[in-house]
């Protein structure tokens, strides 16, 4: 089957919204969303920990749903809305979850961090007051090799404890 008759390996033009901004580019058919974000948009906060969909480090929000960006073609994300770890802080203010994770010593080496932040952001958007069991369940598809997870779980729970604090406030 000659390539030219049925479809192109690339370049394919795509346009999508990333962290609230219109972005675009020409991608190869085989380029994953993760590689597009990292290599073509320079958004290296999204990390590749396994490239086969197990570790969760590359999790982004794709049309608001947590998604493994290593398992989505960039071409498939054409016309979609993507949020990455770089988009969590607004106007230089860390999100409530980011602050809680900082206060809770949630992370160590920081490599898995973006995936956990995105997954937990999605959880809290859907369920603002999860139980510990719900947090552990929601995060069970994200691997961390450093922490044993307890500090991460505590960080998520801290983000939903008590009334919303103002953005400027920070320990």
């Amino acid at each position: 089957m000659p390539e030219s008759e049925l479809g192109a390996r690339g370049p394919l033009p795509i346009r999508l919204e990333v962290n609230g901004e219109e972005r675009g580019g020409d991608v190869e058919a085989r380029t994953t969303l993760a590689d597009f974000l990292r290599d073509q948009l320079g958004l290296t906060g999204t990390h590749l920990g396994c490239e086969h969909g197990v570790c969760g480090a590359c999790t982004v929000l794709l049309d608001s749903l947590p998604t493994r960006s290593c398992l989505v073609l960039a071409a498939s994300a054409d016309g979609c809305r993507v949020e990455t770890v770089e988009g969590l802080a607004r106007d230089g203010q860390l999100s409530r979850l980011q602050r809680a994770m900082w206060d809770s010593h949630s992370f160590q080496c920081g490599f898995c961090t973006p995936g956990f932040l995105i997954q937990a952001t999605a959880l809290l958007a859907e369920n603002p007051t999860p139980t510990e069991a719900e947090v552990r369940h929601a995060l069970s598809g994200n691997l961390c090799r450093c922490t044993g997870y307890e500090s991460i779980v505590r960080g998520v729970l801290a983000a939903c404890a008590g009334p919303e604090r103002s953005g400027a406030e920070s320990k």
Partner: peptide
């Protein structure tokens, strides 16, 4: 661990 080349269509 990059994908091998292939063509893509979204009809």
């Amino acid at each position: 661990m990059k994908l091998p080349p292939f063509a893509y269509r979204a009809p």
